[in-house]
């Protein structure tokens, strides 16, 4: 790969890839990189995706992140977001302060729930998201304090817990992929534990293993995360002209 491709652009494309094949559903991104990924996917290989402004409107056309010139194509207030996710017509990419090998994730608090060392957001819509619609994650800093053996509060349901619930939830549960500053991972291993899918340019398997606090499934050969196509590069520039994506990636 050419040295001229920025890591943030590789990651943006890795995020966009999460929505490949999703068709006409709500592609929801919680955060700059997540939003960029969704909008790049729609601008290029997944044109039927629905994208919101993060407030209350579906937006047609390539809205830059933070842009105000909105071409509204629909209304999606919070109540409709809830309806849409319960109907399974949504794929959200969230962040996570902790995640374990089966994809149980935590945005709520660090330390014991009864008296947290650090109170974060609360579970928000994580429980409902992860049992109702497809969920992916972008985690800007791949490290053992985030990739943990068990999370302090399960705000997003992982495969082991979904299987325990059984029925509809076990059958439809769909954690799609995890994109970090080092690699792309998914849950398509035989027991749905996290596995390595690709390494970003210059990253070794060892780098990922050292920074992961649980055992990963590692295939015999791991490809390098692909660079953007010229069309995708153009879309990235249009959607993030200020380069906000570079600030998302730790130095």
């Amino acid at each position: 790969m050419s040295d001229s491709v920025a890591l943030a652009d590789v990651i943006a494309v890795a995020c966009a890839e999460a929505w490949r094949g999703d068709g006409e559903i709500f592609a929801s991104g919680m955060g700059v990189m997540q939003m960029l990924g969704a909008r790049v996917a729609r601008a290029t290989f997944e044109p039927d995706l629905m994208i919101s402004d993060g407030e209350a409107f579906y937006i047609s056309g390539d809205l830059p992140i933070g842009g105000t010139q909105k071409l509204v194509e629909g209304w999606i207030p919070f109540r409709s977001v809830f309806d849409t996710l319960a109907g399974g017509r949504r794929h959200v990419m969230m962040g996570a302060s902790q995640i374990d090998r089966f994809g149980n994730s935590n945005i709520a608090n660090i330390g014991p729930w009864a008296k947290p060392k650090s109170q974060l957001l609360g579970v928000r819509g994580g429980p409902g998201n992860t049992v109702n619609n497809a969920t992916s994650f972008f985690i800007p800093k791949h490290q053992t304090s985030v990739f943990v053996s068990s999370v302090d509060m399960v705000s997003g349901v992982g495969y082991d817990r979904a299987k325990k619930v059984g029925g509809f939830i076990a059958k439809r549960h769909d954690l799609r992929r995890v994109v970090t500053n080092l690699a792309v991972l998914d849950f398509n291993s035989p027991d749905n534990s996290m596995q390595l899918v690709s390494l970003h340019p210059g990253v070794s398997v060892d780098d990922v293993v050292t920074n992961t606090g649980f055992e990963l499934v590692i295939p015999a050969t791991v490809p390098v995360s692909r660079p953007p196509t010229p069309e995708e590069s153009a879309a990235i520039e249009t959607i993030d002209p200020k380069g906000l994506r570079h600030r998302e990636i730790p130095a």
Binding site: R79, F82, L85, A86, N106, A108, W113, G122, V123, R124, G125, G126, P127, G128, T130, V131, N132, M153, V154, S155, G156, V157, R161, A162, K164, V165, F168, I169
Partner: peptide, 30 residues
């Protein structure tokens, strides 16, 4: 601490004078 959708459901049930409303949101989670 509940899921966002659970709050809506609790208020909706309250508004309809129902004792509860069923949902999947929350199951399997913390």
């Amino acid at each position: 601490e509940w899921d966002e959708g659970m709050l809506q459901w609790a208020l909706f049930a309250g508004s309809l004078r129902l004792p509860f409303l069923p949902t999947r949101a929350g199951l399997g989670s913390g």
